[in-house]
Lab assay of single mutants.
Amino acid sequence: MSIQHFRVALIPFFAAFCLPVFAHPETLVKVKDAEDQLGARVGYIELDLNSGKILESFRPEERFPMMSTFKVLLCGAVLSRVDAGQEQLGRRIHYSQNDLVEYSPVTEKHLTDGMTVRELCSAAITMSDNTAANLLLTTIGGPKELTAFLHNMGDHVTRLDRWEPELNEAIPNDERDTTMPAAMATTLRKLLTGELLTLASRQQLIDWMEADKVAGPLLRSALPAGWFIADKSGAGERGSRGIIAALGPDGKPSRIVVIYTTGSQATMDERNRQIAEIGASLIKHW
């Protein structure tokens, strides 16, 4: 067993022997301040990774656009098919120029040779490549099948209805392509620590998230040296922004954090800054 596999296998073990965790309302004060600064709703939840206990939450059962955070769930569904012998990570998928959609920095470079399922998941999570996500959605049967996968996990809230990039439209009061912070946090925890996926697939999923290259201005910008984070960000229309993450000190994750916002007129930089400040408060009061 590799060191990384050992780390993920012992996530519940280490967490069980940690000192009790206590909620700190100071972080919620910052979440509410972010709402004021952005002029928009902000949803927040913080779960203990081992027990699933909610440590703090704000608007945990209000719907927010998922945006690209759905790509972690998508690759979880792909990995479940791999575990069941219905898919192979090494299978190569070929596609054409007509398949390319807006923001496809990886797939646009491989029109000639195609990409493997493993490479597509890596591109979808680490670079948020939209064509990679659409190609992977095709392998599982489309958005409705991802929703069905989530329902089978016990998540009857999260739903995907459309493809990239239309799913980022974020129309107010439109339930399409949305989740709730509580539902997303619980589902992410199941994917990373539950028995739904094999140990190898859980490790692969967290490795992809740990290698995320496009979430630097968010929670990662607030992390002290030595902290662990595996995350996936999302951005959408109407001032929408979000991030889902597993993080913790001492090089291992111990909490799940989900943050979503929508309806702001603020710039992307300002949305990023507010999420980073929430992260800084979380870490300060850990």
Rank of each mutant, 00 (worst) to 15 (best):
T193W: 10
M66S: 12
V258P: 00
L137G: 05
W208F: 10
E175A: 09
I229K: 02
E210W: 10
M209W: 03
E46N: 08
G85F: 12
L135W: 03
E210M: 13
D250F: 05
R176D: 05
R118H: 12
T186N: 15
S104M: 03
E237H: 14
V42P: 00
P65Q: 03
E145T: 09
S240E: 11
Q265L: 10
D99T: 05
P249N: 07
P25D: 05
L79H: 02
V101I: 12
T107M: 07
T69K: 00
K213S: 03
Y260C: 11
L28D: 10
A246Y: 05
Q274T: 07
T186G: 12
V82G: 06
D174K: 03
G242S: 13
G141K: 15
F149Q: 13
G194Q: 12
A132C: 03
L199R: 05
P181D: 01
D129E: 02
A215Y: 15
T178F: 02
R176M: 05
Y44S: 01
Q203G: 04
N130A: 03
L218C: 05
L146K: 00
R162H: 09
A148G: 04
D269H: 14
D99H: 12
A123I: 12
L219S: 04
A123Y: 11
E108R: 14
T126M: 06
G154S: 08
R91N: 11
L188H: 09
R273P: 02
G76W: 10
N134E: 02
E164L: 00
E175G: 09
V31L: 07
R255D: 00
H110L: 09
P181Y: 01
L192F: 15
P25S: 12
S264F: 04
T198M: 10
T158V: 09
P172A: 11
G263E: 10
S122V: 09
G76P: 00
T138C: 12
A132Y: 01
D250W: 03
I171E: 15
K252Q: 05
W163P: 06
N272E: 10
T27N: 15
A266I: 03
N272V: 07
S221H: 04
A84T: 13
A40T: 04
V106F: 14
K144N: 10
T107Y: 02
D269Q: 10
E169V: 04
S51R: 08
G154P: 07
L196V: 10
T179V: 03
L111D: 13
E87F: 10
E195K: 05
L205Y: 02
E164C: 01
A133D: 01
T147C: 04
T138R: 14
V42G: 02
L55N: 13
M268G: 14
S233T: 06
A200C: 15
A124F: 00
A77D: 07
V101M: 14
F149I: 14
G141N: 03
G90Q: 11
R81T: 09
W227K: 00
I140V: 12
I275D: 00
P224V: 07
I283K: 15
H24I: 07
A84P: 11
D231C: 06
Q265G: 09
E237C: 15
H151N: 09
D207S: 10
S128V: 01
H94C: 05
L111P: 12
L137Y: 06
E270C: 03
D174M: 06
D33C: 05
S57D: 05
G226K: 04
E35R: 13
I256W: 02
S51L: 07
G43C: 03
L111W: 11
R81S: 06
D48N: 03
R41K: 12
E87Y: 09
E210K: 10
G248N: 14
L79S: 03
Q265P: 10
T112H: 13
P25M: 14
I256A: 08
L223A: 10
E61M: 14
E62V: 05
G234Q: 00
D231E: 10
G263M: 07
A185C: 14
I140E: 07
D155N: 15
T131F: 08
G279M: 14
P60T: 07
F64H: 01
T126Y: 05
Q86G: 08
R162D: 09
R41E: 11
D174T: 07
K53L: 12
G216H: 09
E46Q: 05
K190T: 11
L111G: 12
S80R: 13
W163S: 11
N173Y: 13
L49S: 11
M268I: 15
D83Q: 13
P105N: 08
N98Q: 08
I171N: 15
T158A: 08
L100Y: 09
W227N: 00
K252W: 07
A230N: 00
K190I: 10
N98K: 09
E166I: 14
R81N: 04
S104F: 03
F70S: 09
T116F: 08
V106M: 14
P172R: 06
A133L: 01
P165K: 15
K232S: 00
M67H: 13
P224T: 09
E61P: 01
Y260V: 08
L73G: 11
E46M: 10
T178D: 02
L188D: 00
W286H: 08
Q37R: 06
K53T: 11
K71N: 00
L188C: 06
V257I: 14
A222E: 10
S80Y: 10
S233R: 00
A77P: 01
K71G: 00
D113I: 05
Q204F: 05
N130Q: 12
T158F: 03
R255P: 01
A225I: 08
R220I: 03
T198R: 11
P253H: 06
V101R: 07
A211G: 15
M184A: 05
P60R: 12
D207I: 12
D33V: 06
I229L: 14
N50S: 13
K252R: 08
P249W: 07
P172G: 07
S201I: 06
M153T: 06
R202N: 06
D48L: 03
P217M: 15
K144S: 09
L136Q: 02
L135V: 12
I243F: 12
L218P: 08
T179L: 00
